[in-house]
Nucleic acid binder design. Structure first.
Lengths: 243, 243
DNA sequence: AACAGCATTTGACTCATATCAAGAAAGCTC
DNA sequence: GAGCTTTCTTGATATGAGTCAAATGCTGTT
């Protein structure tokens, strides 16, 4: 399990999270009220509808936001990566299920104190607005995928998102040959893309057969030609929604 | 064409729009820089990718936000109703096509002055954050619809959203028998729901045949039993995303 | 009233993805 | 490393929604 950073200055998400614009005593105030929580892969962080008296940021690991219909059909509505924010100031209950996909570490604040600090610190509200607008853009790109893309395009889109994110973490350019690990099971991918797990598996096999990707094991993917993958994703222009 | 309100105090969206929390001289500052623009039904307000040097609120009428793939497939990603905000502070170009569905009146601000006022006026940023979070929730509800609902459920969901919105405008309860006009063509409904126009037409006919709705003309809908419609929409609990 | 131009409905047929059902591969546990 | 369990792949088949095509109904025009 990850060790919690002792001080915000050492925090890996210091410059991307909700605290990014805070300095000096602004940061100090957050520092005072923060606490860390960790969850193991597979664990549920919170259930939709449950009372939620904290908010927080993902520091390390990956979590998902999902919604379900009565009969069990489920749709992922958000993928939470390091620096992403969970919870909504001013709301009592969780709107979605939050589940840890890998082991995760979260930097949390009790909701009440956080809201108080936020109202005194415009930099926090400004950053949160910016992050929320980015998430809204991502959600809309995702709506296009869900509503109009074919299964093959959906898979190619997801792979290119993961490839790009991985490149940005490693500070590499997202072109030419790329290799990365899939952080999601086939089922999670299906829930993300609005497909069944069988269709996901078949389309991955098809992309492999057509030489668009190579697989080592189930999870490690090599993309020999990123441009080819982007073409398969069907986006015009760059089309990527993950920063 | 609508007449522009002369003063914010007479504005029909005064208490729901981005200016909702402003009072006194805060409102005065916005008043000074606002201007009105109107667009006719069918007109494009702005194209994705174009330079956008204003932001604004829909005062009356309905507009849509759409995204398209190169080959012309299009997906609606937002439905703009009175009080909804268009544009993003801090961004140069429009991310989506904005099209007037009915004649609309917009209350606009040039981007630069608006941003300046916003940074001096926390009430504006706070309200915009709240509105953006609401939109994000709506987008996620919509993702569940796009990814996991059947065509019939999608149509029923759309009808119940429109019914609820109509009730909220007329200050009625959304139960029992309801009647309203569809503000969208079959094609716009298809773009909203990720379906083809033919499927939309067929499912509306099916709901009519099954007595879930009645039609007078193409656009006027009567719902004899709202609970029945909600059941057809397949949401658990209330499931509605439009306030 | 006749016509043009849309929006909508309906029909016949196709096809992509879901469903149902085995099996194979990969990870864990003891 | 044998025996689980879980994840993933693949096959056969069904089905919901798409596609292509035609007919119907509305609206506005002259």
């Amino acid at each position: 399990m990850d060790m919690a950073p002792l001080h915000c200055n050492d925090c890996p998400i210091r410059h991307r999270a909700v605290c990014a614009r805070c300095e000096g005593d602004e940061l100090e105030r957050l520092e005072e009220i923060k606490y860390y929580r960790s969850f193991e892969a597979g664990q549920t962080v919170i259930w939709a509808g449950d009372r939620m008296d904290f908010v927080g940021s993902v520091v390390t690991g990956i979590a998902t936001l999902t919604q379900t219909l009565e009969d069990g059909r489920t749709q992922m509505v958000g993928l939470l990566l390091p620096s992403d924010f969970v919870g909504r100031p001013g709301r009592m209950t969780a709107a979605y299920n939050v589940t840890a996909t890998t082991d995760i570490l979260m930097c949390c604040f009790r909701k009440k104190p956080f809201e108080e600090v936020m109202y005194k610190t415009p930099h926090i509200a400004q950053r949160l607005l910016q992050m929320t607008l980015d998430e809204l853009d991502a959600a809309r790109e995702w709506m296009l995928l869900l509503g109009r893309k074919t299964a093959r395009e959906k898979i190619a889109s997801l792979l290119s998102i993961v490839a790009r994110r991985d490149a940005s973490i490693k500070m590499l350019e997202a072109t030419g040959q790329m290799a990365f690990d899939l952080p999601l099971t086939r089922e999670a991918m299906a829930d993300y893309l609005g497909l069944t797990l069988e269709t996901v598996s078949r389309q991955i096999s098809a992309l492999k057969r057509d030489g668009v990707i190579r697989l080592e094991g189930k999870r490690h993917v090599t993309v020999p030609d990123m441009d080819r993958l982007l073409l398969e994703a069907g986006d015009d222009s760059d089309g990527g929604f993950l920063a």
